[in-house]
Design a protein around this nucleic acid. Sequence first.
RNA 1: GCGGGCGUGGCGGAAUUGGUAGACGCAGCGGACUCAAAAUCCGCCAUCCUCACGGAUAUGUCGGUUCGACUCCGACCGCCCGCACCA
Length: 874
Amino acid sequence: MRPERYDFAAAEPKWREIWEERQAFACGDPQKPKYYVLEMFPYPSGRIHVGHVRNYSMGDVIARYKRAKGFDVLHPMGWDAFGLPAENAAQQSGSHPATWTYANIASMRTQLKSMGLSLDWSREIATCDPAYYKHQQKLFLDFLVHGLVDRKQSKVNWDPVDQTVLANEQVVDGRGWRSGALVEQRELTQWFLRIGKYADDLLASLDTLERWPEKVRLMQRNWIGRSEGLLVRFALAGDPAGEIEVFTTRPDTLFGAKFVALAPDHPLARKAASSDPALAAFAEECRHIGTSVAAIETAEKKGYDTGLKVVHPFDPSWTLPVYVANFILMDYGTGAIFGCPAHDQRDLDFSRAYGLGATPVVCPEGVDPSTLVIGETAFDGEGRLVNSRFLDGLTVAEAKEEAAKRLETAQLHGRPQGERKINYKLRDWGISRQRYWGCPIPIIHCPDCGVVPVPDADLPVKLPEDVSFDRPGNPLDHHPTWKHVACPKCGAAARRETDTMDTFVDSSWYYARFADPHNAAAPADPEQLARWLPVDQYIGGIEHAILHLLYSRFFSRAMRDSGHGGHGGVAEPFAGLFTQGMVVHETYRAASGKWIAPTELRFETSETGRRAFLIETGEEAEIGSIEKMSKSKRNTVDPDDIIASYGADTARLFVLSDSPPDRDVVWTEEGVQGASRFVHRVWRLTGELANVSAPLGASAPAEFGAAALDIRKATHRAIAAVGDTIERLRFNTAIARIREFANELTSALDKIETTPVDADLAFAFREAAETLALLIAPMTPHVAEECWRDLGHAEPIVATPWPVADAALVAQETIVLPVQVNGKKRAEIVVAHDASEAVIREEALSQEGVVRAMEGKPLKKFILVPKRIVNVVV
RNA sequence: GCGGGCGUGGCGGAAUUGGUAGACGCAGCGGACUCAAAAUCCGCCAUCCUCACGGAUAUGUCGGUUCGACUCCGACCGCCCGCACCA
């Protein structure tokens, strides 16, 4: 006998055990087509948050659905386990980063398991495991051999007090976030991965990624930032050999040039600064802004006149002043620009600050050039050239071409004065980090041999365990012995590279490692890579739209080109990408301004609205805006609490319901209760259906009455709709369709007149009950298994195929057609699905509402959109 | 600064991708069951006019294309996200 109420606390762990015993989620049936579903692996911060619950629930729906559809599904989990928080924890609490990280992994693993995810835990990896990073070091060395690694100087934000490099986000108003010290820019010699080598391929291949969101592709396109332009060399006035090379995409506007500007770190700017203390001070001031593009570009435009002049390339008698300016980036182009204030907003802002003027040289069509005045806004649109001598009258495109041609043939210092150049915003990827908790860069610096790779036999270069974090700087550098080694080439005393790799490197190839996670000899066996890659569906946050995804795309190419196997013949690691939204929550504040956690509050709903009171004191708290969950605002909810009070199925159902998966979802207690109600309702409904259902395995009767046929139609329409919405990753609508189906079954039960019911109805009820369990299983797997077993099945749902919709039952033989008059709906008609236009026309025009709306006016046009709508135009 | 996204009832959202705007849920209101409450079940629920039938207005704002626009185009307003050492 069934209990009164669904006991999730007993049922959920029971089913998880059964799945585990059966190893239901291990892959490896080569007869089946493969399907690789991957969610971005978590950083082991210690606790999972609701965002994880949402991310992994989505992936799990796909994994369970695809498994039921007959695919050999790879659905693994691992840990992005290197990174700064472990070192911060070590500084604050004294626990070793490894201890801290592995303890966090253990508790998060337990939490994830309590969600009932269909993961293959035998493939678990952690990036901080030497068994993982050993291969990463090997990849780095192979990249080095294949010319994909570079070593060069680069600027960093340096905190002189903490003796550490700062991330851009750690620079607040030009000061270090902890020390408050003025941030300096320092040049460090760093390792780079030459992602730029693949810029064109990375850009062009975006077009092949049809199952990626268009916005992510666009963001990557802009990030790569391919632009065609011209390198133009300006002669320095009064210096026979001197010149400044600028990159421009607008050579057409050269006659509007008012100045040339250099980045503060431009070699010429440095040279000028060496004899001009005021300039040196200005350059130093610029360096305090930090290295982030956002900070540099939003800072007020400032410059310093070097006193130097350059000669205009088209007129030897025309000179332009040379400024050093704070908005010119040394990393882009040549670190120097010519400024045309009339047609570039930044140049205009700068020109207005220093009184350099603005001569318009492009005039929009239909505007009289003599009336053309540049006010506060630069004009960057199309038009024809004016005030530009030989370019006058040309279009922008023609003028670009003409200017380029002339400069290519002109000579300066024995070389062409202009050169066409394709420039990319994409910079090579600096991976050196002056930190302990990361993958050591396997390089030895020998005073005689220079840079020497660590021999394969000595990999992995392991992190030393006995490190301290009690003084500023890199613990690897401070370690008494670790960095001292003999040169592998000459045996002389040498020094290890003490920088570790950016953690983005760790996450750039983990998807490939999952294909063969325990391979000791190689990152992964090429055959396994060919079997599993690319990832069919990748799911994660939009915040990774650019860097992580671009770096992974680089790695798949670099691995292919350095002998680590193609990814099944394709360069792209992720065939399908889905970016899910955040989970957000209301915020609460006490009168004191202190943030209050939702668990500390009691809520009251009255006619005047919702109010919140502190449980402890009764004091009223202000209900604030809905924001991203964060510890500082204390508006987080703990998945453990939810799972303990409502069960994993409820938590999963809630994060999938209501909001479309790519949008933010607001976490509300009411919503969770609604999800919980539905979980219990499905269970009760199944019990009621079971009471009137045919026995397990009963064959279909020859004929069905109207009532039974209606139920079967609802069942098969639900199968079709739910399958379709899951395929389209519209989980919220999939759940709405299941709820609709449940509503239909509830009213069908209400209509039963006599029991026991006839055989046709009994068959339809069994089919419906089984379908309900099968359809909801990807979202709420535990309760689905419980219902399935209550319907008499010995084998669990995880071993049961997805139901197949009967097309004959899904098809409608009559359809409802709305009838519009002049675009406004006035009536509905019911017609056979194959009714002729003449029949429909007669039926439509005879409707009372239609006749009234036509007001006796003559029919002008009769529009019939088959199976959609009728529009009568009068 | 540059780039990207979003905007529909009291709330989250749906709309077969140019064809009935508001599916499904949350909240609310009314009812059944109960000694009572909880749970559950049934019904109502965009706004305005109308007893009702019915009608008018509605998808951030303004304009355009179309027989027909939440959907396409243009301008504007508001909010959110990313910008290379956070992961």
